[in-house]
Amino acid sequence: MDYASILQLLDSTIRLSTPLLLACLAGLWSERAGIFDIGLEGKMLAAAMASATVASLTAAAPGWSLFGIELTWAKSLLSPVIWGLIAGILASVIFALIHGVASITFRGNQLISGFALNFIAAGLTVLVAQRVFGQGGRTPQLAGDARFPPLTLPLSDEIREIPGIGPLWYEVISGHAILVYVAFAIVPLTWWLMYRTRYGLRLRAVGENPAAVDTAGISVIRLRYSALIITGILCGIAGAYMSTALQAGFGRDMTAGRGYIALAALIFAKWRPVAALWSCLLFGFFQALALRPDIVTAVVQFRVPGPILDSLPYILTVLVLAGFIGKATPPRAGGEPYTKER
């Protein structure tokens, strides 16, 4: 295998890791606050659809109006893809809030709620896309300012010719959509918020022992809702990335289980932000490998069926859960609705 193939592989690893990482961090916020969320998938899907739809509509429309009010100025204020991002985040946050109502306010089963929302998202996205565009539940191909353009980092052209580091910088590090860099920047940000701020301290406490937070006079409900909103925002970015950066438009079920892989990555990372980065890169690498069976065959000298590569993240996660690769201890209050005791 040559250096160019390796670079290609790493390049797609970064592309494919980004939605996993965003969704994984999203899951980290809610699970650290004691709310299990297997609805990451649905939130990403909803956001992907909303982003692509709004970006497409804004880009295509000559002017803009809502309920008869002229809004063309808004269109010139931000580019369509940003409006798409905003719409994606909103859609995802709405789903997160429904999860909150079910699991925080009405103390319902968090697993079932997240699971149900995945179904609702899977159906609803197709319904809306079909209603708006009439193209069988897809959005039209996005182009131009309806997509996030690749960003060329400084020095890319200058150091390109330097052997080794030059192509690495040019091929792998540079040239991604801005959301990729945003995703990677959110890792240290999450770490800092979690471990170095008052909000993080309270949030971690509420996932471990909500009664401690409650008796300290802090609202458990408000903290948990706030965590879910962060989850919603991050899933929203992940979905927007899927449909307006990684791909050019929304297609039915386009997240294809990434929400569950992110969940797996979260467990693999034992609910820690920096470890989440590594596990998402690893799982992204597996996905990149599955796209290039030729490379795998070249390395191991026999044909590895694609499905086996596809299932590697899941198998690894099961091994982690089984305690064969370290022990994963979830937040103690995870999954349990909080009820004040008498």
Binding site: R196, T197, R198, L201, R204, E208, N209, T215, A216, G217
Partner: peptide, 30 residues
């Protein structure tokens, strides 16, 4: 101040972290 029969402590926090929880001086912990 109340000392409950069943302690309201966060098990995997340090003593110090438990003590400031809810009575922090500002948004940053240090």
């Amino acid at each position: 101040g109340m000392v409950f029969q069943h302690f309201k402590l966060v098990q995997n926090f340090t003593v110090l972290e438990n003590i400031i929880l809810g009575a922090e001086d500002g948004p940053r912990l240090a």
